[in-house]
Design a protein around this nucleic acid. Sequence first.
DNA 1: CTAGAAACATTCAAGCTTTAAATATGCTCA
DNA 2: TGAGCATATTTAAAGCTTGAATGTTTCTAG
Lengths: 144, 144
Amino acid sequence: MTEPRAIAERELCGLVNGLAQQIADHVRERAVALGLTAAQATALRELTGPMTMRELAERMSCEPSNATFVVDKLEKQGLIERRAHPTDRRAKHLVLTEDGTALRERLLALLTRDSPLAGLNPKEQRVLQGLLEQAIVPGAGRRG
Amino acid sequence: MTEPRAIAERELCGLVNGLAQQIADHVRERAVALGLTAAQATALRELTGPMTMRELAERMSCEPSNATFVVDKLEKQGLIERRAHPTDRRAKHLVLTEDGTALRERLLALLTRDSPLAGLNPKEQRVLQGLLEQAIVPGAGRRG
DNA sequence: CTAGAAACATTCAAGCTTTAAATATGCTCA
DNA sequence: TGAGCATATTTAAAGCTTGAATGTTTCTAG
């Protein structure tokens, strides 16, 4: 409680959360300009190529059931398609449509402008990246 | 798009989000052990002393309307009280009840054990803190 | 081969979060 | 003083997220 070390760690957690919010707000702002919600934009951004629902969920740091919800919306908008997975019949293969690909390009362009990490120069960003990678426990977030 | 710098920044955003999730999951896990939800636990943790709704919302990195929602729950459980603010009649003064204070102590004890930042030693945590403070734009997250 | 365990995706209920709008109070300045 | 704008909180609607089932398919040990 009054242990300085514990207090510092709590404060640090607050900062991580604060920066995550700042990033999320940044995405949300740009998303609405394209008629997307923040969650939809995040999914679109993470869809770097064909992948399964689970892979997408992992990239979004969310539960698979949430990915189902978001992909439903994107599919209704004709931006994405759920195809049969080539080798595993349990899985779906998510593929961007032509419209989806085009919109994703526009989204990435918007997201790249005015980075939410502009306060850090490239070197500082590399240091931050190293620390975050070290702090993140591989299997913990979603099945600890 | 294929610009290496932009890709690195997107990846970095993903890592920030991932660590924030890891921290949130850590809180959630401990919260349920005390009959609290993650949001309620976060509010309780941030209530370091009497404060207004807006102050609490800022500490939680959320909208004031969300703080209203969470404080409603805590108040119904008798953990917190909304009192008149001593100098500003628009504002509420949030104060922990005796039960609330006791539960907060137990929560902090749980949260301190098994830190979600255990992957970093104290020195690394200080470096991380410095970078995060630099990356967070003071007025940005909540009023664009 | 086959039964059991594990993995992928989905559904549903419950709870969280944001936005916009509404109410109440405070502040500034002519 | 009082009009106009800013701030604190709340409400309602829409959307997000999680966790616990469920159905299907795959894997693994015998």
